[in-house]
């Protein structure tokens, strides 16, 4: 399927039109910046405060990716363990579910009691990113073609070889789907935990900048930080979508362009 120019141009035009409308509404109605800043003012603030904001962006991204890395290693390892033994899966999966269904906002204050602020934020981001990777990976490992499993058994393949040559490749599309969800969630987890920690006067991530700017009624800076958070989320999503495409386009239907 070839994308025509209009496929890209139309959404872009609509987006720009909405920004223009915002700008116009603020100017025509003379809305003060501490109520609603115009897009141009947010842009100016972004440039002017870049020194402060970029440092915070780096901190937030660092936490997000550290958490994602830990969630990936932990989730994949635990999923492999689950695939090896039903007994382990039955015993430990409930814990994973409990962690998943308990809102992270509710856990964050508790973690801040036990851990220092940076570690607590990291753990929060890890907790929300962990489950999608674990559950998708477990599903992927279990979804290997049963006939192929029979074939490996026929040739007396060890469980290790079955894992490496069959179950892991079969799980790859599921894992990448989980990673895409977990990437966004890790960012959300980091922000939520930062807000919890920031309100206690600690941390230096983007969420802390929002809270801090809020106290000072610096609304344009709040918006500027928000723009950076959104952009980070979009970027994370795009990176993992691209990764999926690169790894799967040769063989998996999800990354296949449909011929018409």
């Amino acid at each position: 399927m070839r994308r025509s120019f209009a496929d890209y141009a139309l959404p872009l035009l609509v987006f720009l039109a909405m920004i223009g409308l915002w700008e116009a509404l603020v100017r025509i109605n003379d809305i003060p910046p501490y109520v609603l800043p115009s897009p141009s003012l947010i842009g100016v603030t972004l440039v002017k405060d870049w020194g402060t904001l970029s440092g915070s962006l780096l901190v937030t991204l660092q936490i997000t990716f550290q958490a994602l890395l830990a969630a990936t290693v932990g989730g994949v390892a635990l999923a492999i363990l689950f695939a090896r033994s039903r007994w382990i899966e039955r015993s430990f999966f409930p814990f994973a579910v409990v962690l998943q269904v308990t809102p992270i906002v509710a856990i964050a204050p508790l973690l801040l009691v036990y851990l220092d602020a940076n570690t607590a934020v990291l753990v929060c981001a890890f907790l929300v990113a962990f489950f999608p990777i674990l559950s998708n990976m477990a599903l992927g490992l279990a979804s290997a073609d049963h006939n192929l499993i029979d074939l490996f058994e026929l040739y007396k393949a060890s469980r290790w070889k079955q894992l490496i040559l069959l179950r892991l490749p079969a799980a790859l599309p599921y894992f990448l789907g989980g990673l895409r969800i977990a990437g966004g969630l890790a960012l959300i987890g980091a922000i939520v935990a930062e807000i919890a920690a920031g309100s206690a006067g600690q941390g230096a991530g983007l969420a802390y900048r929002i809270v801090e700017a809020g106290y000072r009624l610096n609304i344009p800076r709040m918006f500027a930080a928000l723009v950076l958070i959104s952009a980070s989320g979009i970027l994370i999503y795009l990176v993992f979508t691209l990764l999926s495409y690169v790894l799967l386009s040769r063989w998996h239907d999800s990354a296949r362009e449909r011929g018409l």
Partner: peptide, 15 residues
Amino acid sequence: EIGFVFQDAVLMPWA
């Protein structure tokens, strides 16, 4: 030594 052919080709799609 035994060879087995299934009803479907049962190939590894990633290989």
